[in-house]
Design a protein around this nucleic acid. Structure first.
Lengths: 270, 270
DNA sequence: CAAATAGTGTCTCTAAGACAATATCAC
DNA sequence: GTGATATTGTCTTAGAGACACTATTTG
């Protein structure tokens, strides 16, 4: 009972307790422009999510979020950074915890709990290639229509369409939790993770918390506005957007040019 | 390579990977009144946190958040509920994730990652008693002074005073993370968890997300206002508080009585 | 100049904060 | 009535949303 701490620790066996495997999965978003880009007309943007096609069982051939197991010498955040860097060769600036997914039966391989993260890279860094355990990696165009009873998550790539159906369970403390009605072929409970990540993304885009991460260091206010509009699926008046964002940016003395219309001043994040 | 999923799963060995132990720790808060309660004068409130004194190594004798290891058949949230219920015999309504603490060296027993939760019970349910592995359990009065360079967390019980010093590392996406400068004798990294929980509590008290959980079903608006003021360490004008809270409550036809002054209408959460 | 985007000025409405005034109980 | 708390009214100010207008580039 009153043994010394050294004795206690040397006799202690962690193996006596159940131990799950612990993983991190990352919902990596970027914003890409539509291809067109015809003269004098600014391109449309859309939100994109990186998915990899699983090369192994379980869910072989299904699309999943990139991720992997936490190592003995790293934190779960470091694990998420490492995984996303090996998958994409890009180190994202934002890394935001979405939540822990720990249903006992969420993985057929056994007890694996996963920490979901949300991450963002700028369009200029999109060069994601498939990693070790991934047959293929692709950017999917994201649509997320939220309803009271059903929310529809649609992910589109050239010839692939994934449609998952979810139901909002609750939304407290800024985090929204979903239940999967149809996974649309997404592996594990990743549909849930993606929906939760999107809800979080929209929540935080509202007060400019992370919209800057989608753009390069210098940007125009219109570009910034489009990022917010794309994420939140809304549209706001330029005059009002400018007023609200004013405190968050610093102007530079550079301008865009050659666009067939009035040049725009470039700004930097404050 | 193209083996069947059954074959794959039957040959799969999770034991080949590093597996940490996974725990949940809970910062359980309540609001208690000062003892006085002299005639015609409403009592002052203060925020209290439940700590248990560790009966075992490591950190034997130190104060810690209640918590325990996740079992094989439960989610991490279920684990937090179970632990808090066994410790206190009360099932709290709010259970809010504070974050994952996964520094490799955070526990001398070995690799243990912990999910911190924030939870609340009403004053009328405070009857916490020590559990199995706890020598003692006590409610500590909470003071948290936030500064830019240093934040001071003070926990007081009759003859015990714990003072921890922390530094705010960053505050993004509504979650604030702290670094421990002095743990003040708190076990493990629990000072960090408590600070993060308090920051979250204040954040969410602002828009009435969880202040109701501190009170019984029927309450007066003044009681509700005092809860918010106690948590956030601010004071607001009654007229303004009433206007803001109006949409969140429903009035009943009951009143308080015998208080030596004008009776107050009782309200219910909407 | 026409088309397209950049940027400014200002009106209205709502909500927050401050403050003053009135209401109702126990003693 | 007095002391204490409950409750309402309203003035001012800050910010969001709507809308109209001006500015500057390329072809």
């Amino acid at each position: 009972m009153a043994s010394s701490e050294e004795t206690f620790l040397s006799e202690y066996r962690l193996e006596d307790y159940d131990r799950p495997s612990v993983a991190a999965d990352i919902a990596l978003f970027t914003i890409r422009s539509e291809e067109e880009n015809s003269y004098r007309h600014e391109p449309e943007n859309h939100l994109s999510l990186l998915l990899i096609q699983r090369g192994e069982h379980p869910f072989q051939g299904a699309w999943a979020l990139p991720g992997g197991f936490m190592r003995a010498d790293e934190t779960i955040e470091a694990c998420a950074y490492r995984e996303i860097t090996t998958e994409t060769n890009v180190t994202p600036s934002a890394l935001m915890s979405v939540g822990v997914f720990s249903e006992p039966d969420r993985d057929p391989r056994g007890r694996i709990i996963s920490n979901a993260f949300l991450s963002i890279i700028g369009e200029e860094n999109v060069q994601a290639a498939g990693g070790d355990d991934a047959a293929d990696a692709r950017w999917f165009k994201v649509q997320f229509e939220e309803g009271v009873e059903r929310s529809i998550l649609t992910l589109k790539e050239t010839d692939i369409t994934i449609e998952a159906v979810l139901r909002k369970k609750h939304s407290r403390f800024g985090r929204t939790e979903y239940e999967i009605l149809e996974s649309g072929g997404l592996a594990f409970d990743h549909a849930k993770m993606i929906a939760a990540a999107l809800a979080l993304l929209r929540q935080n885009a509202k007060d400019f918390e992370l919209i800057f991460d989608f753009l390069p260091e210098r940007f125009t206010l219109t570009e910034l506005q489009k990022v917010q509009e794309t994420i939140m699926n809304i549209s706001v008046l330029p005059a009002n957007f400018r007023r609200k964002i004013a405190g968050y940016v610093t102007e530079t003395d550079e301008y865009t040019k050659g666009a067939g219309h009035r040049p725009a001043k470039l700004f930097r994040r404050k």
